[in-house]
Design a protein around this nucleic acid. Structure first.
Lengths: 220, 220
DNA sequence: GTCCGTACGGGTGTCGACAGTCGATCCGTC
DNA sequence: GACGGATCGACTGTCGACACCCGTACGGAC
């Protein structure tokens, strides 16, 4: 007799699975910025109909991961260096807001603990590049989550696809950018509860990241 | 003989037109928050196939104007009062960033002129309610545009659908909220070029708007 | 009266096919 | 050789049909 409680069934739709699959393929670098994403080709690979792939692609388009080219054909997005800088400025505003909210919250110490845990994921030197990107973004997402503001999280996630494009484009000198040491000061500042200092640190973090990735975009 | 250079043809797809149509119907209040949006019904009304309507609905879902209910059925979104407050907090952060950018820009005076023009649209007392909402949001969108940061505009637009839901929900006491007098101080502060003052005014504007619409949501 | 199985209707999920558009290529004419 | 038109191939846009799921009403057995 089985004692296992029978794991709950996967009720995701084909569209959702196709979406995840294509998104992963882009994020992992299997498709490069500028590559054409053919509906028929993807449908063939995934073994689903074009309509299903279509919906997934349209979703990714709104995420900013793919954008429309000639004749409605979709390709993996690429960002100009100007857009990369703009992107990180918006992030600075959003995450700055998160930091302010966390500092003002009575659960600040809990948040600091959670962030320290997220930091640990960044210190595993041996991980491969995609895993480090994930850990980096997970830290910043955690920051937004801890603000307790669901709309902030929503806004941040809306930019996530573009961030990944920017990072992928500027991945050549990835080494120092996503290190634990670059993120620890943010947590320290939150613990210190000095709003002005914390905001300045977030701002500097974003500015240097922007220069890093925008510079890589320019020279490419 | 015709000298007219033959106006360029409309090349919008059915999907785009369906999207605009459904969005307008929701924004104009033709569908109320919570109403079920049936694919077959919409397809019938619009005279297009279900697939086309489907793509439009999925787009609106990512815009936040519709959300999934039971069994994947889509309905017009509604926001809790908490979400409304969170929404306006994020707006405060984004538009505060816009204000800072404008003040720091050498084209500040041009921006002030453009904003004054947008203000004029708010002073037409005779307009109907949807037109006033449009004018209000157009002013704030203009503010973001003038920052010169395209990613900021993108982020703001991503919230626009939810803003409209919040406004529609709390439309009962609409009179004073979108008046010209409430927006003029923002422009004045930009002209004054005092960043701290301008930020405070934007923040107050958003806070009072949040209370206004969130309160209406609570009592509904 | 209650319970269970069945049929039904309204929904969305998914698919395969057709139509239209555009760029590339080839070919005949001048 | 240059130009214009026809042809072909690779796309996306749009559609109608079928499959499946779920809530509900119905009806018979007990």
């Amino acid at each position: 007799m089985t004692i296992e409680p029978l794991a709950s069934l996967d009720r995701s739709t084909l569209r959702e699975r196709a979406l995840d699959s294509v998104r992963s393929a882009i994020i992992s670098g299997q498709y490069r910025p500028g590559d054409h994403l053919s509906e028929v080709e993807l449908a063939g690979s995934l073994g689903v109909s074009r309509g299903t792939v279509r919906e997934a692609l349209r979703h990714l388009q709104q995420e900013g991961l793919v954008s429309a080219g000639n004749r409605g054909m979709l390709r993996v997005s690429s960002l100009t260096s100007v857009e990369v800088r703009e992107l990180f400025q918006v992030r600075a505003a959003l995450e700055g807001m998160a930091v302010r909210a966390i500092i003002a919250s009575p659960r600040r110490q809990d948040a600091v603990r959670a962030l320290r845990a997220a930091l640990e994921q960044l210190s595993e030197e041996a991980e491969d590049f995609p895993a480090r990107v994930d850990a980096d973004l997970a830290f910043h997402l955690q920051l937004c989550r801890l603000s307790g503001n669901s709309m902030l999280v929503e806004s941040w996630r809306h930019l996530e696809g573009r961030m990944r494009v920017a990072i992928l484009n500027g991945a050549a000198w990835q080494a120092p950018m996503m290190a634990r040491d670059r993120h620890a000061p943010i947590v320290d500042a939150i613990e210190g509860a000095d709003e002005a200092v914390a905001l300045r640190i977030v701002d500097e973090h974003m500015t240097s990241a922007a220069e890093h990735f925008a510079g890589a975009t320019e020279s490419a």
